[in-house]
């Protein structure tokens, strides 16, 4: 069976500076991987490059998604293929209601996949169902995308999109940043509900705390642009006790 995501010896530069120096990672369907590491280790860069954010130059290696070369695809094509990045800082888009945004995005993905676009009533029914299951009030969806949302609301909006779009790969970039414990639990419950044998998740985090709620199958430690250690969920606990300092040397 082909792995869902294969990152092979990935090298990435941002404005002359190499951030990732040959990163390798394999994620199979049904698995939850955690990527941990200190600030500046390249965790977020990896998530951005997988999603296709402009401004990064890939100088070596490859990323295969369901066996296809991801690096050649535009960000919207990757999205339609099932790559979903939950942003660390979801942007605010004044003037575009969340509802309009969700419908436009979902239909664009469906169209790209050659599926029929949702008509408004069907779409509304679907959103109501998904929002209801996440305890998101419909009023929130009538506001501009993320405009005036609290940190918790923004992350719930990301989870809502994940639930609505049903991607096969979810990358959660520092999902815990800016959340208190209650908000974190609500968001994590939403994510856990989406765990399935067909779907993989890559959870990027600095702290072990998030992994109490979203329990990973595999944990990777990144330092200075490489994966320096991989293990099971116990690796996260070990890190919490010992810190990242020991790995700085490994990478050097």
């Amino acid at each position: 069976m082909t792995a869902l995501l294969q990152v092979k010896n990935l090298q990435v530069r941002v404005e002359e500076q190499e951030i990732l120096h040959g990163l390798t990672l394999t994620v199979n369907a049904g698995e939850v991987h955690a990527i941990m590491g200190p600030n500046g280790s390249g965790k977020s860069t990896l998530s951005h490059v997988i999603a296709g954010k402009p401004g990064y130059e890939v100088t070596g290696g490859e990323i295969l998604f369901k066996g296809e070369d991801l690096l050649d695809m535009a960000p919207d094509v990757r999205s339609a293929k099932g790559v979903f990045l939950a942003f660390q800082y979801p942007v605010e888009i004044p003037g575009v209601t969340t509802m309009t945004f969700l419908r436009t995005a979902l239909n664009a993905q469906r169209k790209a996949r050659g599926e029929a676009e949702y008509l408004v009533p069907d779409f509304l029914r679907k959103v109501r169902e998904v929002a209801g299951s996440l305890n998101i009030p419909m009023d929130m969806l009538k506001r501009g995308v993320n405009v005036g949302f609290s940190g918790g609301e923004k992350k719930r909006n990301e989870v809502l999109q994940m639930a609505l779009f049903q991607p096969s790969l979810c990358i959660l970039d520092e999902m815990d940043s800016g959340l208190d414990i209650d908000a974190l639990r609500v968001a994590a419950d939403g994510v856990n509900a989406l765990r399935s044998p067909e779907r993989a998740m890559v959870v990027i985090t600095h702290y072990q705390r998030l992994l109490n709620y979203i329990v990973p199958d595999h944990v990777h430690v990144m330092s200075k642009g490489r994966v320096v250690k991989s293990g099971g969920k116990e690796l996260a606990l070990e890190l919490e006790a010992t810190g990242y300092a020991q790995y700085e040397d490994v990478a050097a």
Partner: peptide, 14 residues
Amino acid sequence: LLFYLRARGMTEKQ
């Protein structure tokens, strides 16, 4: 903003 929308599946023009 453009990247956010494209990451959610919209084409550049959309």
